[in-house]
Amino acid sequence: MKRDVTITINGVEYSGNIPIRMLLVDFIRDVAGLTGTHVGCTFEGQCGACTIHLNGEAVKSCLLLAVQCHGKEITTVEGLAREGALHVLQEEFHRHHALQCGYCTSGMLMNAAEFITERPDADDEEIRHALVGNICRCTGYTNIIKAISAAAKRNASV
């Protein structure tokens, strides 16, 4: 019923003897103590607040078990800023007022962080389409689109 699990999160190894049924999002929040990854669903996996990177890809950590990620590397919102420098998306979210309560923000950032490297030239409609898996209740999305678009452009020009 329990397993030894080691997961590298944002470059740091976290280990625990955990129940097989433990969700990845609970490992991240309770075992690793990284509470930037949020939960907004019961079981449906619709809200996207729990989005993280697994193998560099944005996935929902509420639909994974921690045991499935044994030996793997994941990145959470806490790993987005590097050496004290904000990620372009974090800067642009700030500049464009792309967050209000902030609850959806981690998931938005993680989904967008992968998306803008994959599609630096995306137009607004494509960005909107890329965000289908992340609900924001506060902002009405417009500023999020602006922020992601600006970040993608900056990223591409580096």
Binding site: L34, G36, H38, L80, L86, Q90, H94, H97
Partner: peptide, 21 residues
């Protein structure tokens, strides 16, 4: 002024202090 928000930084870094935390 459209002062960028003072609330933002911790939230963007995943360091917000929500109930569940």
């Amino acid at each position: 002024a459209s002062l960028p928000r003072l609330e933002d930084l911790p939230l963007l870094l995943g360091k917000g202090k929500y109930f569940a935390d």
